[in-house]
């Protein structure tokens, strides 16, 4: 497994290179400069010119790129133009809310989806199954921002049970922390749950139709043991893949939900940096997010071997 992990880690380097070139080019080719945003609408062209000269934005692109990459190799992702802090500092400040939100959403998704998926598979063809699948289809069709606004309106504005926006860090107390995260986590989790429910159901159905399940049933095993111990364990691999992918999306892509609920996470950091044309932050965050995504994928792949011993990650020489 060690060789496999090392190989996979090495394989991330070309990916990171391509991403770094792509994001650098996209940002620098996009018109609109940080100067106009920082100096304001009324800045004179002389002031803008002086600013670009001072920040090095007048240098050739290749020179700017190499100086950025050589900084990263030495662990320096650069400094934000706006925030008086380093990119790594900004990311470490913003990653907490995103991780908390992703974990809570994933927890909600798993807790809802797996029992419902198993139930639907078990009751295949019944009204319950049809209802569950209709709900999950509906969940997959609803965009998460719409669900977020509906939940905000009902649970926040009309009933007043939960705050409509804001974020309380864990240091302000677990209850406070969870209260502010519950609405966004429900909005994200419910949609992920829809996907995982469908995946659980179909994976379970595949396994339930296999011969050994019939053999186990004819041995007189209890239905619960049969479903959980024999069917679910064997159906778990594809479900794990979906869980991994959705977690990756949650960590790296909760941009809209973070904006709606005003959660100062990575998504908001990226959006705000784009609006401000804070080049160094956009580049740094995209690169770090890519790393996180690759890391999650690697962890999921490694987990295959743990969950199902039949999966051998190292090829025998």
């Amino acid at each position: 497994m060690l060789t496999y992990t090392l190989k996979r880690l090495l394989a991330t380097l070309p990916v990171l290179f391509v991403v770094s070139v792509a994001i650098f080019l996209i940002i620098h080719i996009t018109p609109g400069s940080p100067a106009a945003t920082i100096l304001g609408m009324e800045a004179t062209s002389a002031q803008i010119e002086a600013f670009n000269e001072e920040m090095g934005y007048n240098r050739p692109l290749i020179e700017q790129y190499t100086s950025w990459v050589s900084g990263i190799v030495q662990g320096d992702f650069g400094d934000s133009l706006f925030m008086n802090q380093t990119v790594l500092g900004a990311v470490s400040q913003h990653i907490g809310p995103t991780l908390s939100l992703a974990l809570l959403s994933q927890l909600i998704a798993i807790v809802l989806a797996i029992p419902l998926g198993i139930l639907a598979a078990h009751k295949r063809g019944t009204i319950l199954d049809t209802m569950l699948m209709s709900f999950s289809l509906f969940g997959m069709a609803v965009p998460n921002f719409l669900l977020a606004l509906i939940l905000m309106l009902i649970l926040g504005v009309n009933l007043g049970w939960l705050p409509v926006a804001g974020y309380a860090p864990l240091s302000s107390g677990l209850i406070n922390h969870l209260t502010t995260l519950l609405l966004p986590a429900l909005s994200l989790g419910a949609i992920q749950a829809a996907l995982i429910t469908r995946m659980t159901r179909s994976a379970m159905l595949d396994v339930l139709s296999l011969h050994y399940m019939r053999a186990a049933r004819s041995k007189g095993l209890k239905e619960r043991t049969l479903l959980i111990k024999h069917a679910f364990r064997n159906a778990f691999l594809p479900i794990l893949t979906v869980i991994g992918q959705t977690f990756g999306t949650l960590v790296t892509g909760a941009v809209v939900i973070e904006t709606i609920f005003n959660i100062p996470g990575l998504g908001q950091l990226i959006i705000n940096s784009i609006v401000r044309r804070d080049y160094v932050v956009i580049q740094g965050v995209v690169l770090i997010v890519t790393l996180i995504y690759l890391f999650i994928n690697l962890v999921i792949d490694l987990l295959y071997g743990v969950v199902d011993p039949r999966v051998r990650l190292d090829r025998k020489e």
Partner: peptide
């Protein structure tokens, strides 16, 4: 800092 209009409006409606 609340850039989303609907959030600012829901926030003032609920007293946040």
């Amino acid at each position: 800092f609340v850039s989303d209009h609907s959030t600012r409006i829901a926030g003032i409606q609920t007293g946040l």
